[in-house]
């Protein structure tokens, strides 16, 4: 990749969806603006944290980046090429390079397919070779034994399911991974394990990641850049140290204040 061109260059990104809740009995549903003109870049090899309150548009932004949604206006340049309005057939070769890990692994793994098939399927679609070897390798990467191939998702623990979700994404050898609240459904110890795993994978595989979270302490550990989103607009976009040491926006300070800090003077209760 030519240096100078970021992996993603997003300009004036807008997205509106029909609001069926307020649809008049006759006529069209009104449109609600969910993303209101966003500008940012994602450098290759960086980890971008996306934070913001519930409903601020984080998931919508992430899903638009990897073109699960089509933007209403603006451009999404991936390696210099605008992918904002490509049709599904043109996007397909790019899909291998843009992967996603979902928040709820129970919902994102088809309950009627075995782990092996879940990981192998995307590889098959893209006509990759050595599928068996790749599946084993991916399972090994996320620390699951090969015997898990024969299991159904409901036969795994929450943390194991999320590892399968990660294995499915990395088996494709993508360049970019969107991780949308990937630990918020897990208990504390699985959270730490999954985060460690992701951290190692990012380093090992040289992945570029957009990491969505409402937990700033996780962002601090993982990310190089942070994008703070509020009601569909960017309130702050800066390197991670700046966000934590010298936040500019009031909204960012509020988010920072909400982090529960371990207080040495107070006995835990």
């Amino acid at each position: 990749m030519g240096s100078g061109t970021p992996m993603f260059r997003v300009r004036g990104l807008e997205l509106s969806l029909p609001d069926f809740a307020n649809k008049p009995p006759l006529g069209r549903a009104p449109m609600v603006d969910i993303l209101k003109g966003l500008d940012f870049d994602i450098e290759a090899g960086s980890v971008l944290g996306i934070v913001g309150g519930s409903g601020s548009g984080k998931s919508t932004l992430g899903r638009t980046l990897i073109r699960l949604l089509e933007p209403t206006a603006g451009s999404i340049a991936f390696e210099g090429r605008d992918i904002g309005h490509l049709d599904e057939a043109t996007l397909r070769p790019l899909r291998r390079r843009l992967q996603m890990i979902f928040q709820d692994p129970m919902s994102s793994l088809n309950p009627r397919r075995r782990v092996g098939a879940i990981i192998a399927d995307p590889l098959r679609i893209h006509g990759l070779d050595r599928i068996n070897a790749r599946v084993d390798e991916a399972l090994d990467h996320v620390g699951l034994p090969g015997s898990f191939r024969a299991r159904y998702p409901h036969e795994l623990s929450g943390g194991q399911r999320q590892r399968v979700g990660i294995a499915r994404a990395i088996a494709m050898r993508p360049d970019f991974i969107l991780a949308d609240e990937i630990v918020s459904g897990l208990d504390v110890s699985s959270q730490a394990q999954v985060l460690n795993l992701l951290e190692n994978l990012v380093r090992e595989l040289g992945l570029t990641v957009a990491f969505i979270s409402h937990d700033l302490s996780v962002i601090r550990r993982l990310c190089s850049q942070v994008l703070v989103l509020n009601r569909g607009t960017i309130v702050e976009y800066a390197p991670v140290e700046r966000i934590f040491d010298a936040p500019e926006a009031q909204y960012t300070r509020e988010l920072l204040d909400a982090i529960p800090l371990p207080d040495p003077d107070q006995p835990g209760w």
């Binding site: 899903r63 990897i66 699960l68 397909r92 899909r95 291998r96 843009l98 992967q99 996603m100 979902f102 928040q103 709820d104 919902s107 994102s108 793994l109 088809n110 309950p111 399927d121 995307p122 679609i125 893209h126 499915r168």
Partner: peptide, 10 residues
């Protein structure tokens, strides 16, 4: 999400 995930898969 497994449907979204199938779209991501291609």
């Amino acid at each position: 999400d497994y449907v979204s995930s199938a779209v991501v898969a291609g």
